[in-house]
């Protein structure tokens, strides 16, 4: 029963990992950069929600209405002010800049909020659960968080598949110069992609911060888990990423069921195993995005 429970919890957690990962993949797909600050930006969103809760008494769900647009705006500005410039500096510059940014944001959070662990309070709802059999209960909140993750990923998939801007992003991902020849302003598109990525990571950050505790250094593991979800699932495939997140969540859940200290380690080992035997991931996309 313990095992079943671990699997169920892992699946639910995987939805959120995949949501963080989706933003990472989107930015990588469109402009071929890995935003090393992606994880700490999720944490930043959680702190934003925390502030709104503390000062205005807002519930984390309500705070999304402010945090998500604010993070999206930050993403747009970040792209325009820093990352565009970094993109022109060759292959290493974006990595150096986003890593520097991660360190800066993390330490600013540390200065502002101290290293104390925090948790967003979703109220009575946080403890409610559905009893399936005895010993196996699914919390309403983890279920909702996972559903939100899947919904946002599905929405992102529809956006990329159906909209004019989504098509332009896929085209740019395939061939940036040819996309410009179609009248696509790649820099505006980059800014929109980063805005979407930060908007989605804000949702993930608030849900993750409500599910479990966080502190300013939580960005590191957030980034790592998202990356593992992407690689396990297969680069360039949103549904693969979702699968990757679920596999990672289940591995962590099963590991932790054996010994709490093995949770994260089990996830890493599954990632390394996939890298060793199936480097293109479990669900590689036909054409890499």
């Amino acid at each position: 029963m313990n095992t079943v429970n671990a699997v169920v919890q892992g699946v639910l957690l995987g939805g959120l990992y995949a949501l963080v990962a989706a933003g990472l993949s989107l930015v990588f797909g469109v402009m071929r950069i890995v935003n090393l600050a992606h994880g700490v930006l999720a944490v930043l969103a959680a702190y934003g929600s925390l502030l709104l809760g503390e000062h205005l008494g807002w519930n984390p769900f309500l705070s999304l209405l402010v945090v998500v647009p604010a993070m999206a705006a930050l993403g747009y500005a970040l792209q325009r002010a820093l990352l565009d410039r970094a993109l022109r500096g060759g292959e290493l510059a974006p990595l150096l800049v986003t890593f520097g940014l991660a360190i800066v944001i993390q330490n600013l959070l540390l200065e502002t909020f101290s290293a104390d662990t925090q948790r967003l309070d979703v109220g009575a709802f946080g403890g409610a659960s559905i009893e399936l059999t005895d010993g196996l209960a699914i919390g309403w909140f983890p279920l909702l968080a996972a559903a939100a993750g899947v919904l946002v990923i599905a929405g992102l998939g529809q956006f990329l598949a159906r909209t004019r801007t989504g098509r332009a992003m896929r085209a740019t991902s395939d061939d940036q110069e040819a996309a410009q020849l179609m009248g696509i302003d790649n820099r505006r598109l980059y800014a929109v992609a980063t805005a979407i990525a930060l908007g989605t990571v804000a949702i993930a950050g608030v849900f993750l911060g409500s599910r479990s505790t966080f502190d300013p250094s939580a960005g590191a593991t957030t980034l790592i888990f998202a990356f593992e979800a992407v690689v396990i699932g297969g680069l360039g495939s949103l549904w693969g990423t979702l699968l990757g997140g679920v596999v990672l969540g289940v591995a962590q859940g099963l590991g932790a069921a054996i010994d709490p200290a093995y949770g994260v380690l089990a996830g890493h080992l599954v990632f390394l195993a996939v890298l060793a035997v199936r480097p293109r991931g479990l669900l590689p996309s036909a054409v890499t995005a």
Binding site: A178, L181, S285, A286
Partner: peptide
Amino acid sequence: AHQRVGSGISLCPEGRRLFPSLTVEENLQV
């Protein structure tokens, strides 16, 4: 380049340079 498309210049580049992960119709839509 993208501004010039707006003003009415369109280049069909050497080697076609279609977007391989898009369908034919999506290529045209782009």
